[in-house]
Simulated assay, not measured.
Amino acid sequence: MLSVVVAPWGSGEPVFVRAPDELHYAASTMKVAVLAALHRSGVDLDTEVPVVNRFASAVGGEFGNSRDGDGDPLPWELLGGTAPLRTLAERMITHSSNLATNLCLAAVGHEAVAEVWRRAGATRSASPRGIEDHAARDAGVDNLVSARDLVRLLRSLDGDMLALLERNAFRVDLAAGLPPGTRIAFKNGWVAGARHSVGLVHPGDCPPYLIAVCYSGLLASGEDVADPAARLVARISAAVWQRRHGIAPR
């Protein structure tokens, strides 16, 4: 299943949609909602929190993250100590750390994340559980997104959050389809069977635009970089770039 939404930045309806409301497993795109919840919580981002690997499951009990399944080693090096929420939020976005995500989520709570989706105007997407809460997923409690809702979510962010998204280190999908040096604030997510990316692109010769691509299928290998589905997303990004002058509010 392939879903695509392209829309002007700011107000305006999408100029192109393909299966925009189809639900996909969220993978790491849900980390954008956690980031927004953290920024809007009023908590001091320089607050030091314990770096632990035990979290409350959405269905009761506890769960932990797998170090081998996390692409970011830095939070694991801090295990047993403390770290500022600001640092954890940065690693959650720039290096897609699962451990940092669950620590940020524990600091704000699931209801705050649900409010982020509501405030964005999302109609189908939700993030009711933490990363690797397998018991919850087995019970049918899952993180799901649609391409349309991801565009709505990015549109609801302010400058500081978007600036952080520009520092995303995994630039093999949406960013790879753009000319070198093109500004893009984006977050991607990948697991075996799914590859998604949503971003705000800043061309130098026309207004910025939003693009979300969600792919679920056998093409997605689950590799962070060498994922065939990432190349598919890059090709779609490149095709939209070629038509960027036609992306304007209707």
Rank of each mutant, 00 (worst) to 15 (best):
L157F: 09
L162R: 00
V213C: 01
C214S: 10
A112N: 03
A56W: 11
V15A: 02
G42N: 03
D72W: 13
I211T: 07
S3E: 13
A185L: 06
G222F: 14
T101Y: 14
S146R: 07
D142E: 15
G193R: 04
R243M: 12
G199Q: 06
L162Y: 08
V43A: 14
P75N: 09
M92F: 13
H110N: 05
H134C: 06
L79I: 07
A147F: 10
R124S: 06
M30A: 10
G60P: 06
R152V: 05
R235I: 02
Q242P: 06
A147T: 05
R86F: 14
T94C: 08
T47R: 09
G42V: 08
L210E: 07
G222I: 14
R231C: 07
L99D: 02
A230L: 08
T29Y: 14
W76A: 00
L153K: 00
D149S: 04
S216F: 08
E223H: 15
L164G: 00
I131L: 15
D158H: 11
S197T: 14
E48H: 04
V15C: 07
G159C: 07
L153D: 06
D227V: 13
R148K: 09
M161T: 08
S127F: 09
A107M: 04
S57P: 07
R118Q: 13
A19T: 11
W241D: 04
A107H: 01
R155S: 01
L78Q: 09
T87Q: 12
V34S: 02
W241E: 05
S156D: 13
G10I: 14
N98A: 09
